[in-house]
């Protein structure tokens, strides 16, 4: 549904008489399949917004190709616009307009007739649980309500692909939870979504696939689980209460353990996939007559992945 190939964009910045090209996106490549939610994860300035603005026809790439919903970005920009929905970072509702007016206007900007536009607006208000506030001015809304109007506007032309640029940025926790629910619903409805975020938990919870963007490039891409496995596999912690030396011997011999460390009261095992090897661990320990007190599987967080791929932590920033 979205194919992006080696997109590049630099900005010209002038310093006195000198102009220098500052690369914002240096060759980004990724695909999004129909019905998938892809998250572009990265810190501010990593090139996420520039990428999304190129894909939504707002800025022209310096080079590279992209095909969105079967329309070529370079040669069929007007067609791309008709087939996509875009929700910008800051939102785009006017203080003095009501949600209903904004939705009707948005529909009409796509060339939809008056009656049909009203009908679509009413349906969208209903879907996004906005009917109660529909005829109040947008300036009276909470951040979450206002962002829901933005998303409803992005969907009014029944797009094949929806672009969401930092949909939860600047919202309070309740507003963020609200928007996450909406994205979950879109995902359940089979909408193809490209969403940028710098919240790891969000990318983890909402996206089918995640592309980590750093310094204008995709440094890692895959499902959240795949990415986590690429980095460290899983960690299995055994509480052994005294039988550690015996268990250590058994586990050192096991092929599925890539590395092990002893802890205060047991062992920490590094494995490829915790879920798959857990029965084997129990089986092998049982054969040696060892019954662990506790057993826990930890998955590395996306933060571990980001740290490994981008060379720094996202949460510490």
């Amino acid at each position: 549904m979205i194919e992006v190939n080696e997109l590049r964009k630099s900005y010209r910045i002038r310093f006195g008489r000198k102009t220098i090209d500052v690369p914002a996106v240096r060759g980004v490549t990724f695909d999004v399949q129909k019905g998938q939610v892809l998250g572009l994860l990265g810190s501010n300035g990593a090139g996420k917004t520039t990428t999304i603005r190129m894909l939504t026809t707002l800025i022209r790439p310096d080079s590279g190709h992209a095909v969105i919903a079967d329309a070529d970005l370079a040669t069929e920009a007007a067609e791309v616009r008709r087939r996509i929905g875009y929700v910008s970072q800051g939102g785009c509702t006017a203080d003095n307009s009501t949600a209903r007016e904004e939705l009707v206007l948005q529909a009409r900007m796509f060339g939809i007739g008056k009656a049909e536009a009203r009908e679509r607006a009413a349906r969208a208000l209903d879907t996004f649980k906005l009917t109660e506030y529909a005829d109040r001015r947008c300036k009276t809304y909470s951040g979450g309500q206002r962002r829901r109007v933005d998303i409803a506007m992005g969907l009014i032309n029944e797009p094949k692909v929806l672009f969401l640029d930092e949909p939860t940025a600047g919202l309070d926790p309740a507003g963020r939870a609200d928007i996450r629910d909406e994205i979950e619903r879109l995902r359940a409805d089979g909408m193809t979504v490209l969403v940028t975020t710098h919240y790891l938990e969000e990318a983890d919870a909402l996206c089918d696939r995640v592309a980590i963007v750093e310094k204008g490039q995709v440094v890692a891409e895959g499902t959240p689980d795949e990415l986590k496995r690429q980095v460290a596999g899983d960690v299995v912690t055994l509480g052994l209460n005294g039988s550690t030396p015996d268990a250590e011997k058994v586990m050192t011999a096991a092929a599925y353990v890539t590395r092990l460390e002893s802890t205060d009261d047991g062992l920490r095992l590094f494995v490829d996939s915790g879920n798959r090897v857990l029965p084997k661990i129990l089986h092998d320990l049982d054969d040696a007559g060892i019954v662990p007190d506790t057993i826990e599987v930890h998955r590395p967080s996306l933060d571990d992945v980001f740290l490994a791929k981008a060379g720094r932590s996202l949460t510490a920033a």
Partner: peptide
């Protein structure tokens, strides 16, 4: 421009 109104319109066939 700042309120995003222009961007919003530019991503439509207007």
């Amino acid at each position: 421009l700042r309120a995003g109104m222009i961007e919003r319109a530019r991503v439509t066939p207007m």
